[in-house]
Simulated scan of single mutants.
Amino acid sequence: MWQRKLAVLVVAGGVLWLFTPRYYQGPVNDHFDGTRFFNPGKPMDKGLLTVLKWRLTSKREPWPPWRELPCTDHPPRRVEGNALRVSFVGQVTTLTQTQGLNILTDPIWSERASPLPWIGPKRVHPPGIRFEDLPPIDLVLISHNHYDHLDLATIERLWHRDNPRILTPLGNDTLIHSRVPQARIETRDWGGQVVVNAQLTVRFEPMHHWSARTPLDRNRALWAAFVLETSGGRIYFVGDSGYGNGDYFRQAREKYGGFRLAILPIGDYDPRWFMAYNHMNPEETVQAWHILGRPFMLPTHYQTFQLADTGYAQPLIDLRAAMARAQAGEDRIRPLKAGEHWWVDGEDGGNAVMSGVGRKTE
């Protein structure tokens, strides 16, 4: 009898192995064991059973039903030189304009952050920029493969319209090419870089997170933060990250010295016993901002998709309390509503090819 059970397990394991996606194959290093990526010294201790426990005990705080935005952003076609304009589209999708380049971070224009169009977390408001109002997109940065960050439908729309360059950590190109075979994708490991042009170099740095699209592909693709080096200063973009004792933020400060702008997540952090590994709460984000040298900061990852137990309004309430404790005003940390934009450093847009104005939602 036991021989039969063993045979069944062996066959089942073989079938599972056959159907387990392999997005990347490369040499073993301090964060890749030859099969899966990991955070060095901080192994993830929450598996499927822990996810089920959270789902069964979840006490979700209220979120509103669908609501229209009072206005959406109508960005300029280009922003030249060192002027820096950033627009908050929603979740961690931002449009960053500087050096004559239009850069999208983790773009998602889909209605749901899900593999299926009829189920899964749904937007509570439209994107802060209508897709047809986007200027020509030159560069797309994708931090990792979770559905609210890597949205294949949006990538396909952008490819058909603008054919942008896509920069993403190792393994995510396999996912994107499964939907858009012709997409122009450049992947790098932590510590890698891409020279976009004479005005911009993008560097790949660690962030404390994980990846998965299905139960079978956990940590098969890498996650990363980005540092955008320009003559006007460095921009630090983190899509998702646990605080992880602040180690990666200290490393970034030591390596680069300082930043002009940090784009950091603040939301979807409850319950802490489950979410702390994945997502910073606002208090931790402000601590990270302090470690980074107190640059200008744009908070993200709130009031778009309900992905945790955290209430709709709570991230901004907690952020303002953390800002007060850190004696940080909105001249340094600027929470935006989706559809709003910010001329960083107080730039008035004088170097823009076309001035940007808000547009009422029709």
Rank of each mutant, 00 (worst) to 15 (best):
P315F: 11
N29C: 12
S241F: 04
V28K: 12
W273G: 08
I119Y: 10
V10I: 15
L158V: 05
R359V: 12
M207G: 04
S178P: 02
R77V: 04
E283V: 10
Y302E: 00
M354S: 14
K42P: 00
Q306F: 01
H146S: 04
P75Q: 15
P206V: 09
W273V: 04
G192Q: 12
T50D: 14
P265Y: 11
P64D: 05
K122S: 01
Q251H: 05
Q193F: 13
T214H: 07
R77P: 00
Q251T: 07
R203L: 12
D268R: 09
R157W: 06
N82G: 07
G171F: 02
D240R: 00
P136F: 04
D151I: 03
R218H: 13
D173Y: 00
L95D: 07
Q327P: 01
I166T: 10
Q97A: 08
E330R: 06
R60K: 14
Y277K: 02
L264I: 01
F237I: 00
K122I: 06
K42N: 15
A7P: 01
P295I: 07
T57C: 02
H144F: 10
V28A: 05
V195A: 15
F19K: 04
R359S: 11
L139G: 09
L18H: 04
T96I: 15
R220G: 13
V357T: 14
R234K: 14
K42F: 15
L200K: 10
V140A: 02
